[in-house]
């Protein structure tokens, strides 16, 4: 049983991790806790669903044992772009203006309002019923036999989610440590004024941060839709685990966010047999309080 929970936790954890990378980047670079980040996940998931309807008219083949094929990947690309666009639009209309007013908390509150509006608009547009990218039943493959600590069974889709997450995390790491834009993002996170002095166009870096953060959120949303279901409140339900992962990993540390996401995912999954599935969200809250008491800068954080 324990290995199975670990595996389920890692799948959930990789979704949280992808969402948390974007959240920690925008938190560090834009300097506010974006309560609308959860809705970026939801928006991405629904947009992919919309696009999928179009692409499936062209092709309905799937990759081997997976429930999806090119249409979903193309939809994922559309969702990434659209969610990035949504984030830019929100920044332009709301966050940038509130940020200039100089009251940091006004931006947080604005994001709270934007989250509510977005969530309810999605409910209005798509209704409250859960939806799925595919109705096909996936057969879980035994990775380890029952004799080994209860065994592990995972669906091909879950494996795909894990695999793509690993690739994306490696790509993000290389991007942030090697690419000029990635380094510029770290520089802006550390000190925007010095970044300006160094010749970095901070406004452009901020725009790219929104696009990358929201794009990763869209991926997380699509993955959550693929492995669980698509609902208007899916992002809201993930928001607390996302924040817990960000703070656990240390604000501004993408690798910390990944590790934090995996820890939160596994902890939630392991807690299910102890406290019941209905309390899994509370696990993220307890982790959050614990880390704030013990080490508020997080595991990899530099700043409080």
């Amino acid at each position: 049983m324990i290995l199975q929970q670990l595996a389920d936790g890692l799948v959930l954890g990789s979704i949280i991790a992808l969402g948390a990378i974007g959240l920690t980047l925008t938190y560090a670079i834009l300097r506010f806790a974006n309560f609308a980040h959860g809705e970026f996940l939801t928006f991405g998931a629904y947009l992919a669903l919309l696009a999928l309807g179009q692409f499936q008219a062209l092709s309905t083949t799937t990759f081997g044992p997976l429930s999806f094929g090119w249409p979903l990947l193309a939809s994922l690309a559309v969702a990434i772009l659209a969610t990035g666009g949504l984030a830019l639009l929100l920044d332009r209309l709301l966050f940038a203006k509130l940020g200039r007013a100089g009251v940091a908390i006004a931006v947080v509150m604005g994001s709270f309002g934007a989250a509510l509006a977005l969530r309810n608009l999605l409910f209005f547009a798509f209704g409250g019923e859960p939806q799925y990218y595919s109705r096909a039943i996936q057969i879980a493959l035994p990775l380890l036999p029952r004799s080994v600590l209860g065994g592990v069974r995972v669906t091909p889709d879950q494996l795909a989610v894990l695999g793509i997450t690993v690739l994306l995390v490696i790509a993000m790491h290389l991007f942030l440590s090697r690419a000029t834009l990635g380094r510029a993002m770290r520089a802006v996170a550390h000190n925007p004024q010095l970044a300006t002095v160094t010749g970095i166009d901070v406004a452009a870096v901020v725009r790219w941060t929104w696009i990358i953060g929201a794009g990763l959120a869209a991926v997380a949303g699509v993955f959550a839709g693929l492995t669980v279901q698509i609902r208007p409140t899916m992002g809201l339900d993930l928001l607390l685990p996302l924040f817990a992962a960000v703070i656990l990993g240390g604000i501004g540390s993408p690798l910390g966010a990944v590790l934090g996401g995996l820890i939160v995912g596994v902890a939630e999954s392991l807690a299910v047999p102890l406290v019941g599935a209905e309390y899994r969200a509370a696990v993220a809250f307890l982790l959050l309080i614990l880390i704030l008491l013990v080490r508020p800068t997080g595991l990899f954080g530099e700043r409080g």
Binding site: R183, A184, A187, A189, Q193, L194, I200, E302
Partner: peptide, 20 residues
């Protein structure tokens, strides 16, 4: 004050300065 990027290495600080 605060005139270097503390979270970047020395080499990264210099390379970033010359990115253009």
């Amino acid at each position: 004050t605060e005139n270097v990027f503390a979270n970047l290495t020395i080499q990264e600080n210099l390379e970033l300065a010359g990115f253009f």
